[in-house]
């Protein structure tokens, strides 16, 4: 297939552990097969800084934990036709959202860095060093429209292959009982 007519695919890494992307790598030689049928335009595996225009399919891993995640997610949504919540953190918040019951991010930060705010990155005098945490971790759906959900922590490689194959072929996805949270 001519590379220009293949679907343009992106994978995005927000607030997650990158396990979903590891599972994607577990496709092993099937990656080569997929590479024939799609055109990977953006991914943590690639050396590209800017999320491109006109993306057909984006797999988004992770929940929205900081303002940078939120900004990137909105950009992805605006430039992507089919957005897939990739893995439990993106689908439901999951481990990334474990801090939500504690309320503000401060108790969580204090637990890790101590109560001396001068030692907490992104807070007070350290503002700007890392993106500030959002008050509450969001699953993707809370901020943007999501087209498909691919649950699992991480989603098994076989399932990722199935999902990518279907979407790349332009079919609508129906996972029924094939997928599970957790």
């Amino acid at each position: 297939m001519e590379s220009l007519t293949r679907p343009r695919v992106a994978t995005v890494w927000l607030g997650g552990c990158s396990g979903c992307h590891m599972s994607l790598l577990d496709l092993d030689e099937r990656l080569l097969d997929l590479a024939e049928r799609m055109h990977l335009v953006y991914s943590p595996f690639m050396d590209i800084k800017q999320f491109p225009e006109h993306v057909d399919i984006a797999l988004v891993e992770g929940a929205v934990a900081n303002e940078d995640n939120a900004r990137l997610l909105r950009l992805v949504r605006s430039r992507t036709a089919v957005l897939v919540a990739f893995g439990d953190c993106a689908v439901a918040g999951n481990v990334t959202a474990l801090r939500n019951p504690l309320g503000d991010p401060m108790p969580v930060l204090a637990r890790s860095y101590g109560t001396d705010t001068s030692r907490i990155p992104g807070v007070g005098a350290n503002a700007g060093s890392v993106p500030p945490l959002v008050p509450k971790v969001h699953m993707l759906r809370s901020l943007v429209a999501v087209d498909y959900y691919l649950p699992g922590c991480p989603p098994p490689a076989d399932l990722i292959f199935f999902v990518l194959s279907e979407l790349v072929a332009g079919r609508t996805l129906n996972l029924q009982s094939r997928a599970t949270l957790g």
């Binding site: 309320g103 509450k136 949270l181």
Partner: peptide
């Protein structure tokens, strides 16, 4: 979890309450 799987519940449309 098994009920969710058997019913094809892959995500939750409601706001997670995250109670402490």
């Amino acid at each position: 979890q098994n009920l969710a799987v058997s019913m094809g519940v892959h995500h939750v449309r409601y706001e997670p309450q995250a109670p402490q």
